[in-house]
Amino acid sequence: MDLTKVDLCKEYVIKSITTHDAELEAFLFSLGCFSGEKITVINRRRSGSIVAIKDGRYNIDTPLAQAIEVF
Protein backbone atom coordinates (compact mmCIF):
# COMPACT_ATOMS: atom_id res chain seq x y z
CA MET A 1 0.00 0.00 0.00
CA ASP A 2 1.10 3.58 -0.49
CA LEU A 3 1.86 6.16 2.18
CA THR A 4 -1.55 7.84 1.96
CA LYS A 5 -3.16 4.67 3.31
CA VAL A 6 -0.86 3.63 6.13
CA ASP A 7 -1.48 4.14 9.85
CA LEU A 8 -0.02 7.24 11.44
CA CYS A 9 3.01 6.99 13.71
CA LYS A 10 3.71 3.40 12.76
CA GLU A 11 7.01 2.39 11.22
CA TYR A 12 6.88 0.82 7.75
CA VAL A 13 9.52 -0.43 5.35
CA ILE A 14 9.71 1.09 1.88
CA LYS A 15 8.95 -1.44 -0.85
CA SER A 16 9.30 0.76 -3.92
CA ILE A 17 9.30 4.37 -5.11
CA THR A 18 7.90 5.12 -8.55
CA THR A 19 8.05 8.76 -9.60
CA HIS A 20 9.42 8.43 -13.16
CA ASP A 21 11.81 11.18 -12.14
CA ALA A 22 15.31 9.75 -11.82
CA GLU A 23 16.71 12.98 -10.39
CA LEU A 24 14.10 13.15 -7.63
CA GLU A 25 14.60 9.50 -6.76
CA ALA A 26 18.36 10.10 -6.50
CA PHE A 27 17.61 12.98 -4.16
CA LEU A 28 15.28 10.87 -2.03
CA PHE A 29 18.03 8.29 -1.95
CA SER A 30 20.52 10.77 -0.54
CA LEU A 31 18.05 11.52 2.26
CA GLY A 32 17.92 7.82 3.07
CA CYS A 33 14.55 7.24 1.44
CA PHE A 34 14.82 4.08 -0.71
CA SER A 35 13.53 0.54 -0.76
CA GLY A 36 14.38 -1.37 2.38
CA GLU A 37 14.56 1.74 4.58
CA LYS A 38 12.15 2.63 7.36
CA ILE A 39 9.59 5.40 7.08
CA THR A 40 6.90 6.70 9.43
CA VAL A 41 3.99 8.98 8.57
CA ILE A 42 3.69 11.40 11.47
CA ASN A 43 0.69 13.36 10.27
CA ARG A 44 -1.41 13.71 7.16
CA ARG A 45 -3.43 16.46 5.49
CA ARG A 46 -5.33 16.39 2.22
CA SER A 47 -2.44 18.07 0.40
CA GLY A 48 0.46 16.22 1.93
CA SER A 49 2.03 14.20 4.70
CA ILE A 50 4.74 14.79 7.25
CA VAL A 51 7.09 11.83 7.34
CA ALA A 52 10.11 10.73 9.37
CA ILE A 53 13.02 9.35 7.36
CA LYS A 54 16.26 8.46 9.16
CA ASP A 55 16.38 11.14 11.88
CA GLY A 56 14.77 13.93 9.91
CA ARG A 57 11.25 15.27 9.29
CA TYR A 58 10.02 16.09 5.82
CA ASN A 59 6.81 17.27 4.28
CA ILE A 60 5.94 15.43 1.09
CA ASP A 61 2.95 16.25 -1.08
CA THR A 62 0.21 13.73 -1.80
CA PRO A 63 1.46 12.71 -5.28
CA LEU A 64 4.82 11.79 -3.77
CA ALA A 65 3.17 9.98 -0.85
CA GLN A 66 1.20 7.94 -3.40
CA ALA A 67 4.39 7.10 -5.25
CA ILE A 68 5.94 5.46 -2.20
CA GLU A 69 4.81 1.85 -1.58
CA VAL A 70 5.50 0.32 1.81
CA PHE A 71 4.89 -2.90 3.65
Partner: peptide, 9 residues
Protein backbone atom coordinates in the same frame (compact mmCIF):
# COMPACT_ATOMS: atom_id res chain seq x y z
CA UNK B 1 1.43 17.69 -14.52
CA UNK B 2 2.24 15.46 -11.66
CA UNK B 3 4.81 17.38 -9.71
CA UNK B 4 6.41 16.29 -6.50
CA UNK B 5 7.24 18.46 -3.55
CA UNK B 6 9.48 17.60 -0.68
CA UNK B 7 10.59 20.01 2.00
CA UNK B 8 12.74 19.34 5.00
CA UNK B 9 11.11 20.50 8.23
Amino acid sequence: RKSFFIMEL
